[in-house]
Design a binder for these strands. Structure first.
Lengths: 186, 186
DNA sequence: CGTTCACTGAGCATGTTGCCCAGTGAATAC
DNA sequence: GTATTCACTGGGCAACATGCTCAGTGAACG
């Protein structure tokens, strides 16, 4: 079931695509790029050869597009998507933190040491930081929060427990949007 | 550079592992599982064969572990990680929505139609829903929010724009934690 | 004490990859 | 207008990884 992508050095393919780069590091992707990403999202284990067959283009083309999408940074990688729930962490929560002036760096470093902190953002608005937490249970969430706020510098933490996840993290609609925009604008 | 995972039906490998399943669909993973996931996270394009070499175990073992991790649901997939910023959406924001009683389902359906909504959760606490948005610019964020709140049922929306992302979405520390817990408990 | 199970190490046919090449049409530059 | 560049096609070849199978081993389990 788990097949592979041979480990390889892998230089850029013979082709180099006339990349359309917009302002600010933005990369324009066309419809074919969009289809490649969508196909890859739907069937991650598909091969370049199989993709070229499905998309009706030459293998080299898919190869080149993929290389470009990766060196572009559009596709950051293919890391395994691990489900925290399956690991025993079925509870997800978002915590808004208020930080004491100048303690930002300390808090950031501290948060990075807590495994249950899956991501951390600094934001505008009421809070100063927003983080995503997971825990083994609602009760366990208390332990996690205690550990999080166990550092000087966090003035207040406000937690919202996730009940449902109607829209799981997704990117395809945005990719299609971006591909269509490219078609229209050029 | 972009190598592959041959498209294949792929039945379970000959081996079936004495799976340790805990209460509530939780799967216990051991140290080897942890190393596999970590290795895969670090070098997603590595092959089963290469992994077995690096980890010092037989190819079949890695194959079987990986199959199990996937059928377990611990590894959900290997979808491409697309960077919204590279696509021209460098602005990320979190919006807290307050929903009018009974309008939840309508709002959920509506949110799913907005490409810039990357994820949506229903939560406890002050707000009723929390969503992650992206936009082409701060100005564009207004357009996105307008589109989001363009449905009856959203009483109030409070938005926090992300400035920095000190801890990007990660899972490895949790995986290691889970692997260690397994070692200790059983 | 026999069975089950995870794992090893080996093998083989098949299929994919990495890389190369010549040729085409279209957009770009001179 | 003409030459060049570039994305893409379709073909080819050697090297390699995969999918699947098999026999054997040690440890945990009933």
């Amino acid at each position: 079931m788990l097949s592979e992508r041979p480990a390889s050095a892998g230089f850029l393919y013979r082709m180099t695509i006339r990349t359309t780069t917009l302002e600010g590091g933005t990369v324009a992707i066309d419809h074919l790029d969009g289809r490649i990403i969508a196909l890859l999202a739907r069937e991650p284990r598909i091969g370049v050869l199989e993709m070229s067959r499905r998309l009706g283009v030459a293998r080299g083309t898919v190869q080149a597009r993929l290389d470009r999408l990766q060196s572009n940074g559009v596709i950051r990688g293919f890391g395994p998507e691990v489900d925290p729930a399956a690991l025993g962490y079925p509870v997800t929560a978002f915590a808004t933190l208020q930080i004491r002036q100048g303690q930002g760096p300390d808090v950031r470093a501290h948060m990075a040491t807590v495994p249950e902190v899956l991501e951390l953002h600094t934001t505008t608005g009421t809070g100063d930081m927003l983080c995503r937490l997971v825990a083994r249970s609602n009760a366990d969430l208390q332990r996690v929060i205690d550990r999080v706020v166990a550092i000087e510098g966090i003035v207040r933490a406000s937690t919202a427990i996730v009940m449902e996840n109607p829209v799981p993290l997704r990117i395809i609609p945005l990719v299609e949007q971006a591909a269509e925009d490219r078609e229209r604008n050029g």
